[in-house]
Design a protein around this nucleic acid. Structure first.
Lengths: 236, 236
DNA sequence: CAGTGGTCTAGACCACCGA
DNA sequence: CGGTGGTCTAGACCACTGG
């Protein structure tokens, strides 16, 4: 085994994890109690508790006070998505990120937009439309509305050195966000900007970010289906 | 404050979280050390440690041995995705799930398929193609290859009472999976099966699941762009 | 009631970092 | 060297569950 260098709580975790992932303990089966693990591994209760608590946080185990610990249902296996800055993503791949500004303006909130941003209809909003390129190839159309209350100097930023995502992350402490991913066909203007056929399927990510009491921004990010995909891993 | 009913470690966490999300402590700034928190809150070191450790697990704080604890970069805010059974998802919405079987057969692995499933070219694989409907409306085209070693009786399952996802979750303990989401246009057969126009953009989720030593299954799930989206929330 | 988990303490040893 | 985090212990009190 490779457990020898693990801390004690890690060895207890590994022991339980192996029994679960091998199928020896099935969903709903009881997991050894803290006191059982104390005797079995010769550890203190705090150590056994930490092992079980971390497994609970990871979604592998359910615990009920007064009852015991049980193997969780399997479909809880999960993966994490992060808000990433596209510039970071591109340079991390060793490629060059550039950006074209299509629009950068002050506009008035339509009723739907006002609703989404928590403003009055007709209120001032910032609006930018950018195209992000990786090694000169367009990979993202970014159409973004920003609440002036959250970032008053948004339009003064220089999009050749920073990105809206990065600017907002550093200027408006982010507390919450929601997103959705859907498929769409591009508008003629988007197809032109992304240099793709008007019939090509695209991924659209709609993101709404909240900063403190304000909705900070509403963004619609369009990716050509042929040049971009989201990927991830589910673990243990 | 509403902290009064929180356990001690929770109060310490809340204290730090507030300073971070309000922007008072910015990324890179030091967070109070364990011994500082001990004095400030009158708690033991284990309690202060737990607060800081959980904040680290949540990605809000970075800790370096011998140096200290620091506010993490903000873009770490994350969300979790889970593998969900489509039948569960539909019935949870109070709707009716049904399913049409398009194909259910034994076939031979092409070179690419063999590579993805960890088999030899020409080896036996199970192949099913199903259409899932919500209240009679097609919402998912499921094209799946299954490794016989992981689920020998896969083709004997009754797809009117169970789904491949559910069958595999219960019969092949899942240890790992990877996925990718992309946009595509449907093939003529898929458009027909999903009852959509051949030009409609679709979401495609490709999922590869691993069970113990075997790759269990390779699935391509196609969703009509007009009827389905992935959505989620980023928290704290 | 006995057994479970949820929390907390006071003290300990170690490895690491920077001055 | 002193301060930091990483881990561990032995014991404690509480709330909850089931029989």
């Amino acid at each position: 085994m490779s457990n020898s260098h693990l801390p004690a709580y890690g060895q207890v975790k590994a022991f339980i994890q192996e029994h679960i992932s091998s199928g020896a303990w099935k969903p709903g089966d009881p997991v050894p109690s803290e006191s059982t693990l104390m005797k079995q591994f010769g550890v203190s209760r705090m150590t056994a508790n930490r092992a079980l608590r971390e497994l609970t946080d990871e979604g592998l185990v359910n615990r009920v006070q007064g009852l015991g610990s049980f193997v969780a249902e399997l479909h809880r296996i999960s993966s994490t998505i992060r808000i990433r800055d596209i510039q970071e993503e591109v340079t991390e791949r060793g490629h060059v990120h550039t950006c074209r500004v299509v629009r950068s303006e002050v506009s008035k909130a339509t009723p739907e937009l006002a609703e989404m941003l928590g403003l009055r209809t007709g209120a001032k909003v910032f609006h930018t439309v950018l195209v992000h390129l990786e090694n000169g190839v367009p990979i993202q159309w970014e159409d973004r509305y920003v609440n002036p209350a959250a970032a008053p100097d948004y339009l003064k930023a220089d999009w050749s050195t920073t990105t809206p995502t990065h600017y907002l992350l550093t200027h408006a402490p982010l507390t919450q966000a929601s997103y959705s991913i859907e498929a769409c066909v591009p508008t003629p203007e988007q197809a032109l900007g992304l240099e793709i056929a008007a019939t090509e399927a695209c991924l659209a990510m709609v993101r709404r970010t909240v900063s403190g009491a304000n909705v900070a921004s509403l963004a619609r990010l369009i990716y050509p289906g042929s040049r971009y995909r989201f990927a991830g891993e589910f673990q243990s």
